[in-house]
Computed example of a mutant assay.
Amino acid sequence: MMGQLKQERLRVREQNHFLDLLMQVSPMGVIILNFGGEVTQLNPVAAKMLRVKMHEVIGKKMAGIATPLALALSTMELEETKDVRLEDANIYKCTYAYFIDQGFRHPFFLIERMTDVVMRAEKKAYEKVIRLIAHEVNNTTAGITSTLDTLNEALVDVEGTEDMRQVMQVCVERCYSMGRFITRFADVVKIPEPTLTMSSLNELATVCARFMEGICADRQINLQLQCSDEVNDVPMDVSLMEQVLVNIIKNSAESIGVGGDILIRTITPATIEVADNGKGIDQDTADRLFTPFFST
Rank of each mutant, 00 (worst) to 15 (best):
G160D: 10
G160A: 04
G160V: 03
G160E: 10
T161F: 10
T161C: 08
E162T: 08
E162L: 07
D163L: 15
D163G: 15
M164G: 13
M164V: 13
M164I: 15
M164Q: 12
R165L: 05
R165Y: 05
R165T: 08
R165M: 01
Q166N: 10
Q166C: 03
V167R: 10
V167A: 10
V167Q: 06
M168Y: 02
Q169P: 02
Q169G: 11
Q169E: 11
V170G: 11
V170L: 10
V170Q: 11
V170D: 08
V170Y: 02
C171L: 15
C171G: 12
C171M: 12
C171N: 11
V172C: 04
V172H: 05
V172S: 11
E173G: 13
E173A: 12
E173Q: 10
E173D: 10
R174K: 15
R174G: 14
R174F: 10
R174W: 08
C175N: 14
C175K: 06
C175L: 05
C175E: 05
S177Q: 10
S177C: 07
M178Q: 13
M178S: 09
M178E: 12
M178C: 11
G179P: 03
R180F: 08
R180I: 07
R180S: 14
R180H: 15
F181I: 12
F181M: 12
I182C: 04
I182P: 01
I182S: 00
T183S: 15
R184L: 01
R184V: 08
F185I: 15
F185W: 14
A186R: 01
A186I: 03
A186G: 06
A186V: 04
D187V: 04
D187I: 01
D187H: 03
V188T: 08
V188N: 11
V188S: 09
V189A: 10
V189F: 13
V189I: 15
K190Q: 11
K190R: 14
I191H: 06
I191M: 12
I191N: 00
P192R: 09
P192L: 06
P192F: 06
P192C: 06
E193N: 15
E193R: 13
E193C: 03
E193V: 05
P194K: 00
P194I: 00
P194E: 01
T195Y: 01
L196N: 03
L196Y: 04
L196A: 05
L196M: 07
T197A: 04
T197S: 05
T197E: 01
M198E: 14
S199L: 01
S199Q: 08
S199P: 01
S199G: 04
S199M: 13
S200L: 02
S200E: 00
S200V: 03
S200T: 03
L201C: 01
L201P: 05
N202F: 00
N202Q: 00
N202T: 07
N202V: 06
N202W: 01
E203G: 09
E203Y: 12
E203H: 11
E203N: 05
L204T: 05
L204V: 02
L204P: 03
L204Q: 04
A205N: 01
A205W: 05
A205L: 04
A205F: 02
T206M: 09
T206G: 09
T206Q: 07
T206W: 02
V207Y: 07
V207C: 00
V207M: 07
V207H: 09
C208E: 04
C208I: 08
A209S: 13
R210V: 13
R210G: 03
R210W: 12
F211E: 14
F211L: 09
F211Y: 12
M212E: 07
M212A: 06
